[in-house]
Amino acid sequence: MKRISTLIAVATLALAGSSFAADRPVHLRGEVTAVGAGDFVVTDRKGTKTTIKLPEQAQVLDVSRSSQAAIQENSYLGIAAAPAPQGKVRAMGVMVFPEAARGLNEGHFPWDLGDRGTMTNATVAKVVKKASATELEMRFGGKAQQVVLDKDTVYGQFVPGKRELIVVGAKVLVIGASAADGATAANAVMVGRDGFLPPI
């Protein structure tokens, strides 16, 4: 697929300032409420409206629902999680990556979905099914992280998308940067299919 490596590298969401040394990184989740020739407006859950510039080089990802059934040993996942007892984390959102994503931006780092949230981009080493939840042992760079999947975990997957997906009513996660003058520009836009909000 055209430019798939670039798209996947963006979608692993390890952009915490590395691409925008002079700007403030932005992760904006919400609904598209207006679309212009080179920009669009996102309204977040609090009702705040933000105008997003959409440069020609910005990437668009088409995100659809997935399920726990898509996860097996050796799957490569991006997991947005909250702290859990015994050093584990509880998965709030899981993105199942295409095979071409394997190994890109691998690691465990802070994330802004929830209080003390983290992101884990890693390979499933073990799947342990229990009565109330499923636990994953995620491996990255010789390290391991235990992840709990429960009834509230949301699952997604993605393919490269087109700018035409950004329409009024679409649910999006915008990854970009806010400049000193207050303007926000997208580096990537994850667009949920059929009203689905990207789960990370």
Rank of each mutant, 00 (worst) to 15 (best):
D23L: 08
A101W: 12
S66W: 10
V128N: 01
A188Q: 00
A80V: 08
A11L: 13
A14C: 04
A91D: 03
V168Q: 04
R29S: 02
Q57M: 03
R102L: 04
F109P: 00
L165P: 06
A122N: 06
K171L: 12
V168S: 01
R163D: 00
E31I: 07
K2E: 03
V26T: 08
K53G: 11
M92S: 09
L28Y: 08
I200R: 10
L136R: 12
G36Y: 09
K53D: 10
R90Q: 04
A144W: 01
A70T: 13
K46T: 07
V26W: 02
K143F: 02
R193L: 06
G141E: 02
N105W: 05
A183S: 13
A100C: 07
V42Q: 13
D150A: 08
A179D: 11
N121T: 12
V96W: 02
F196M: 04
R139A: 14
A80N: 08
V154L: 04
Q145H: 07
G103P: 00
T120R: 08
M92Y: 08
G156S: 06
E56V: 15
F40D: 11
Q145K: 15
P98C: 05
F196Q: 01
A131F: 09
V168T: 11
A144S: 13
L13W: 04
R45G: 01
R116D: 03
L77T: 12
A170H: 07
G114I: 03
P160S: 14
G141M: 05
D112V: 15
T153E: 00
L13I: 12
V60A: 00
T12G: 06
K129H: 02
G38Q: 11
A101N: 09
A185Y: 06
T12C: 12
D62S: 14
D150I: 13
N121R: 03
L197W: 01
S18N: 10
Q57T: 08
R116K: 14
E106G: 09
H108Y: 12
F97D: 02
V159W: 05
L61E: 03
Q68L: 07
A101R: 13
R116S: 03
K151H: 05
L136K: 13
Y155T: 05
K53V: 09
T120I: 13
M119C: 06
M92K: 14
P55W: 13
A81L: 05
D152E: 11
R90A: 09
E73Q: 11
F97H: 15
E99R: 15
F109N: 00
A177L: 01
G30L: 09
T153M: 00
E135Q: 14
A14M: 04
G117Y: 08
S132D: 12
G156R: 03
Q59P: 00
V189R: 00
A58D: 04
E137F: 05
V42R: 15
A22Y: 02
D44Q: 10
A34D: 10
A81R: 10
V159Y: 04
A16Y: 05
R29F: 02
L136T: 11
A84K: 12
A186P: 03
I71K: 03
G87Q: 11
V168Y: 00
S67V: 09
T118Y: 02
I71A: 06
E106Q: 15
T120F: 03
I166T: 06
A186T: 08
V189Q: 01
I52T: 15
V159H: 06
T51N: 12
V128Q: 01
E106K: 14
A37W: 01
V154K: 07
Q86W: 09
K53N: 08
L104Q: 13
E99M: 13
D39W: 15
